[in-house]
């Protein structure tokens, strides 16, 4: 099995809201002191791939990213987690390209890298959260797509993809090649690479391409907005003043809390 896992490097989504600012004019988030991390769902995808390789054997995992030069760190970390090969397409254009652009770039890089039985992406990214890369990539590659997968098994030449739904879960039998988008689950929490492996990863080869090397319309990719544009970006001011229930004893406070609850539920 040949697996391709696509990774996106993003601004750490765990930074507290009070430290988060946007540059409204550029319609992007301010970097500030936040670190850059690999999107969690992309890491869940990589972890799912690594576990598949451990069970099924005979599997090669390639990681691919389209991003700023700093995205190399996400790929190095993936190598430290024991991905087999890595490639980066450097984005020297729009720092927030639309999903169609991203899918187009990934599809072109995918073709340069070889043929894959399984292409994995995160269900969405923790920054813009568009949730479209997997579906659009599948369309461009003319492959089927299954979303919200959390585990993959090989069963008699087919892949059994377990995925989460609104009400429970489903298993899909898929004939490779197939594109999947991955979501989080208790079983695919990304492993922490060993410090030594992180250091070693910087000595491993890493393929780098510019947009001009992909055989796509590079200027259009740099513009990155033929699908959609961000017209506005703002932080909504929406704070409620919380009434902390008062009372001299715990009993009084809880009584007051219970009364407030009944005020709401009783009025329904």
């Amino acid at each position: 099995m040949n697996i391709l896992v696509c990774l996106k490097q993003i601004l750490d989504p765990e930074i507290p809201a009070r430290d988060f600012r946007v540059v409204a004019a550029k319609r992007e988030a301010e970097r500030g002191s936040a670190s850059l991390v690999t999107n969690i769902f992309c890491e869940n995808a990589l972890e799912t791939a690594l576990q598949f390789r451990e069970r099924a054997g005979g599997t090669k995992i390639t990681v691919l990213s389209y991003g700023q030069p700093s995205a190399e760190d996400s790929l190095r970390k993936a190598l430290a987690m024991k991905a087999d090969a890595a490639a980066l397409v450097v984005n020297d254009g729009n720092t927030n390209p639309d999903p169609l652009t991203v899918a187009r770039v990934l599809a072109a890089a995918n073709a340069k890298l070889g043929t894959f039985d399984l292409i994995m992406v995160g269900r969405e990214a923790g920054d813009w959260g568009a949730g479209q890369t997997g579906g659009l990539l599948a369309e461009m590659l003319e492959l089927p797509c299954v979303s919200f997968v959390d585990s993959i098994e090989s069963v008699g030449g087919k892949l059994h993809l377990k995925r989460q739904t609104d009400t429970g879960w489903e298993t899909l039998a898929a004939e490779p090649p197939v594109v999947v988008t991955v979501t989080n689950d208790e079983h695919n929490v990304p492993r922490i690479p060993k410090v030594r492996d992180v250091m070693m990863s910087y000595r491993q080869p890493l393929t780098q391409w510019t947009l001009d090397e992909l055989g796509i319309n590079a200027d259009e990719a740099r513009a990155g907005n033929t699908y959609y544009d961000v017209a506005e970006l703002a932080i909504p001011q929406k704070e409620t003043r919380c009434e902390f229930v008062s009372g001299d004893t715990l009993d009084e406070k809880v009584e007051a809390f219970a009364r407030r609850i009944i005020e709401v539920t009783g009025a329904m």
Binding site: P16, A17, K238, E239, T240, C242, E243, F244, V245, L250, D251, K253, V254, E255, F257, A258, R259, R260, I261, I262
Partner: peptide, 28 residues
């Protein structure tokens, strides 16, 4: 941060609050 979005709240350990809250709600 959840309190910044809450209409009302109680600052206590839930282990102490919840059993008592059930009693109070049942009574009310």
């Amino acid at each position: 941060p959840i309190f910044k979005h809450s209409r009302f709240g109680i600052v206590e350990d839930y282990r102490k609050v919840v059993p008592l809250l059930r009693e109070k709600l049942a009574a009310l």
